[in-house]
Design a protein around this nucleic acid. Sequence first.
RNA 1: GCCCGGAUGGCGGAAUCGGCAGACGCGAUGGUCUCAAACACCAUUGUCCGCAAGGGCGUGCGGGUUCGAGUCCCGCUCCGGGCACCA
Length: 821
Amino acid sequence: MAEHYDPQAVEAKWQRRWAEEGAYQVDNDDPRPPYYVLCMYPYPSGPAHQGHVRNYTFGDLLVRRRTMQGYAVLSPIGFDSFGLPAENAAIKTGVHPRIFTEARIGELKSSLQRLGASYDWRRVIRSHDPLYMRWNQVIFQKFLDAGLAYRKNAPVNWCPGCHTVLANEQVLPNGTCERSGDLVVKRDLEQWFFRITAYADELLDALDDLDWPERVKTMQRNWIGRSEGAEFDLAVAGTGESIRVFTTRPDTSFGMTFVVLAPEHPLVEVIVAEERRAEVRAFVERVRSESDIERQSGEAPFERRGVFTGARALNPFTGQEVPIYLADYVLMSYGTGAIMAVPGEDQRDWEFATAYGLPIVRTVAPPEGWEGEAYTGDGPAINSRWLDGLGVAAAKARAITWLEEQGIGKRTVNYRLRDWLLSRQRYWGCPIPVVHCPGCGIVKVPEDQLPVLLPDDVEFRPTGESPLRYHEGFLRTTCPECGGPAERETDTMDTFVDSSWYFERFCEPWTAEVPIDQAAARRWMPVDQYIGGIEHAILHLLYARFYTRALGEVGLAPKEVREPFERLFTQGMITMDGSKMSKSKGNLIAPERYFAGVGADSLRLFHLFVGPPGDDFDWSDQTDQMIEGCHRFLGRVWRLGAGGLERATLVDRDPTEADRDLEKDTHRLIDRFSRDCDRWSYNTAVAAAMEFVNTLYRHVQAAEGARRATVDFAVDSLLVLLAPMVPHITAELWELRHGVGSAVHAQPWPVADPALVKVDTVTMVVQVNGRLRARLEVDAHIGEDEAVALALAAPKVAESLEGRRAAKVVARPPRLVNVVV
RNA sequence: GCCCGGAUGGCGGAAUCGGCAGACGCGAUGGUCUCAAACACCAUUGUCCGCAAGGGCGUGCGGGUUCGAGUCCCGCUCCGGGCACCA
């Protein structure tokens, strides 16, 4: 095996060895300090793709490195095994989703093993396992008891392609389904929700303390969309009714010149003037018939977008009556479904006022020379009586105080975030464990009957309807309370429910007593480093944060664990011609052919070397050549490690200058490599290793290279540093060099000697008027005077000065001297 | 529209605190080895002028600050992402 680098043989040998040894299994009572590394568990879609390779390479690297640094590293893996693709496959081919999914899990598992990823395979979680389903259902029932899960009738997002409802988070901004691309429509349905909005504030505030990419935190902040303002009542003239409005700008209330209700507002029918009823109804009908897309496109001219109700409201600030309109740009689902319109400080209101000939009163003085329309910036209040002269913030506070004194309003906070709709009208998911009894209403399935399992003998219809609805044996049941006939709930849970707590279950995945073993969770949670794709910035990462809190609240997990993921790293996507690689686009470049060719180590190294881990990478024609380059590098490492390059000088003798140089280079590599890894700059760490190998080659091949002991130290250090990145080749070479009893992955992570890292001479550049004129080797501790003297004495410098006197000399020893004339 | 990123050779990228732009790799060119090739190894490789020594230009565009700017400031262009009648 030593003659040449044979990745197939080496990788097979070590993968077998690691499996036999149970390497990277870790027990909960391990005395070493705990460290929890987790990659987002994958949906099993078949063999790994390049995105998986990248993700799990980053994870594996960290697992192995932290282990070498002396931690007990928890490194579990599982499979997000419920979901639509398996069911769609069943509809098409008739193969049961379980059979289909388990086959895909087998393929993905063997890809991961072929990659050399190190997991505690004993801890595997598959979301469709009956035991995991049981705990999913127990948690749901606890949430139900705690009021965190509830059922309500609401207009929900229905995807006609997927035949199910979707959460808001799963609908793209253009109104289509993120999975199927179908246009999502609104349907009024009875659905199950999780009360994530109860945690809106905490989910928002706690973001500040998370060591997460700012980008992701910003996305979550936008999604939660907290806005502070006030709510207050407006009396409707000539009726006993009042309209409650929400505004973030109570300071501009004196400028309210009309009021707008959402077309769906319940008071519309009550307040509408008789002579306008027909017109208003026609408008409401028209808006209802429009899709969300049409309605939200904002394309229609404002003249078509509203209607006057004939009713008037009293502006409590001015005491004046203002007209009440309906307009499609006011949404029933946000705030109170009614707004006070202030055209002077809101552009939409401005445009609406202009279209309908309504008055515009500015209540904030725009800056000098302002030529725009609505002014939304800060400035002194005007036309606002007792608010005049106050800035926006002060005027807001004063206006809210006044509303509260009058007893007609109060300070409020609104969120964009909606409760999480978790029911899905699909088969391949975890059943929601309740029955519907005509007499008793919704009744939980008793815990001793859990889990509610999916029946196997179902028919998958090409219409895509849930088979559970037509399975009499599943559907018909008896009420656990009254014993009478009842219907089982046929909705299943969103698969994001499964992924919202699997990381807690990993701490003690065997227990049949509780969903989460509290002692184990206290030991490992929160996850020290979570790694996954940016595409989960909102969905999964927000749900998991909610679940972690809710589980603590209902006593199923340690209450003190509020956040699931201490540090988050979001890796870039692998794209091809700028778009995401995917099976459906048919542009997958399967890792298998690289496993079979250059080997897993070369492919891993490529993914680490190609660029910053957080950046997207576009796969191109040239990519294969880069992978070849990584393979070539490993070939050089092999020849260094396995011997055969020795020259005459590579013997035992007294150390020379070359030995001191190589020793320093080795320590500098250790230093740089470690620091680069710490800051997720694997591409530069690899570059440093490549440079070092080039240096080593010079020593090994030159007539006056370093001696054997120095080279051995250098090569051993290199192997230890590379061990987390390319585990197989380093393991093999280490065993070759040190014998079967010694393992590279059991070596402690090396620490550089600061004295040797320090440089004693540096290249000082001398500039004349900022232009490079000379480079001098100088002592690293050179003083300013000496540096200047050396600089001025350099022939090139004197030449460029042409006898002119230096007007100024900027000295930054030992790096630079700049002579200015 | 608002909020975040980003733009550096033929290509992927580096430059960590305002101080040598282009590390490392790919590709390309030349060479060594070989009967020949593959492999491997060595050298050159931002660009323009020049036989050379050497010099000019150069980090999307236009300004600015500074002895000195890829890096800081102001104003743009283009690309990517997020949010978007959210009151």
